[in-house]
Amino acid sequence: MTGTTLGVLIVLVCTVLEGIAQVFLKLSAMSAARAKDLGAAWVRRYGWIALGVAFYLVEIGLYTIALRILTVSAAFAVSSLSFVTVTVFAAWMLHERVTRVRWLGIGLILGGVTLIVAYA
């Protein structure tokens, strides 16, 4: 495996971690909105936040390693795939309704971000 392939794989893992971390943060917000038993809701809310932040910390560590292998623009371009992973995890784990228009918008964003960072 070449260094570049390893770097891209690490950034891809980061996008998956980003998707999971965001789901945890959304679960935290949802438990706050539905709070009835304040004590239990507090534990749930901050538990989800702690999990989300823990995933972020792992992601930051891995991304730092990837930046030592890849150029910043290459890493940035690959990491924009997190818009896709976050949406896939939101649809799968949170059962959010993702419409065709929303997917089309995400596709355009991916293309646009790639253009911005590729020529930076």
Binding site: R102, L108, G112
Partner: peptide
């Protein structure tokens, strides 16, 4: 100019969403 085009494409995507 490619970055300016990228900005326009991102804005179009966000507008759709």
């Amino acid at each position: 100019w490619q970055q300016v085009a990228g900005i326009a494409v991102v804005v179009a995507g966000v507008w759709l969403i």
